[in-house]
Amino acid sequence: MERVIMADKLTKKFGDFTAVNAISFEVYKGEIFGFLGANGAGKTTAMRILSGLSYPSSGKAMVAGFDVYEESEEIKKNIGYMSQKFSLYENLTVRENIRFFGGIYGMGRKELKNASEQLIERLQLGPEANKLVGSLPLGWKQKIAFSVAILHRPKVVFLDEPTGGVDPITRRQFWELIYEASEQGITAFVTTHYMDEAEYCDRVSIMVDGAIAALDSPLMLKQQFNAASMDAVFLQLARGAKRSE
């Protein structure tokens, strides 16, 4: 299987504080990788390193075949990103948002036009496409934000708590979009606080105090920790955490 993300003893220190402590893992093409951990466990920091926003203090990491130290510009072209804070422009229309984000990834005019019309059709936006994003319900915004993040067909899409504050039905629809993307070979790297979502992932890692405490498929994890649900697995691990917010 093709490795899309590889981290080897990846470490990030802020002064004396070790936010990420020598984490190692691999993520494969088309995989949906859940990146779990309590607040302050270090998952956002790890994600920032992998997405080129921050440099590691030590260790090695490759994303989409490029080194995070040397080739962060190449990485940026090959990833998509959607943050927990909502990330479309509220006072642009849906269509303008799609065009803009496609544009900053260097998509050509024609390619962009086709891709945006396809997207509008697929999400059944119709006339809503010319409305300002600010006037749409949150669930819609997030579906659009995700679709925009994978518009340029990245190898990996990083999703930082993408479904925060969304109702269960919309969350379910959102995950269907992730599955679709994964079938097209786009790897999804997801952080979440919802344990039902952890069950949807192919594999899950759970970070505790900056280190990876467990990593496997949800099924195996439940067996390993002798738990009925991912919720129970998570609680067993996170309870042992020394640092918390």
Partner: peptide, 12 residues
Amino acid sequence: MGTMEVLLVSPM
């Protein structure tokens, strides 16, 4: 708004 992060992750 959080859009700055998205811009910084982009190749721009």
